[in-house]
Amino acid sequence: MKPAPFGYERPRDLQAALAVLAEADASVKIIAGGQSLGPMLNLRLVEPELLIDIAGLAELKQVERQGDELVLGACVTHADIEDGRIPDVTRGAMQGVAGNIAYRAVRNRGTIGGSLSHADPAADWVSALSALGAKLTLRSLAGSRIVAMEDFIVGALESALRAGEIVKTVHVPAMPASAHWGYVKSCRKTGEFAHAIGAVMIDPSAATARIVIGAIDSAPIVMTDAAELFGGRVAGDYKDRFDSRVAEAILARAGVSDAAHRHIHVNVLKRAVREAAA
């Protein structure tokens, strides 16, 4: 299938893009790499009147370290991260996630900001950045606001982005040297969307654990203080203290009503915990 006709605009800078977005009605879509939107356009699931192409905007392709965090422009691609073309503050965690998103040809155009804006619950960055404690700068003509990842995704394909707003930058805090990282996903085949994701950042010395159960049908379950999964206390023996029954109950409460699905999610999470401890 071919897309329904759409208009196309390539604004000269971010301000111009926001201005176009602000004046336009609801049937405008921002496009960057187009790796999520393209298939939907081609299937005529989405029929915008106008596409605003932000892929060329230099402001969205900048990467810099600001104090203890890395600030990435929204149009940095998965391949940019995979190949190490940008600095890393996550001790390789982001590189590892990026290299396993879809396929190389997709990673060469797909962007981190685009993936987040699309808010597919099965997408890697949605879960991984939540676990890393990332924040986003959302920008509109009215100004900027900062939203934590765990508040950004509100449902399946539904983010906290308001009309006229786009994801401008992703702020990734440096991962402490004492933190352990684990990221496991279950896909039926390489490059496929995940059916279960476990993303964990556990710092036994700080007794903290950020735990994400992703690729459920709604927003991921983000536990910023996940001590309950480890018997109420995060310590060096967290791997042995991980309590599958608690994870199971959390999933049930979140509406994952099918036992087999819960079983897979719990075990994927368990593996992510084990990977962190390894």
Partner: peptide
């Protein structure tokens, strides 16, 4: 034989 079916059968 999908992962879901395997897990479902085991459960």
């Amino acid at each position: 034989i999908t992962p879901y079916r395997v897990v479902e059968a085991i459960l």
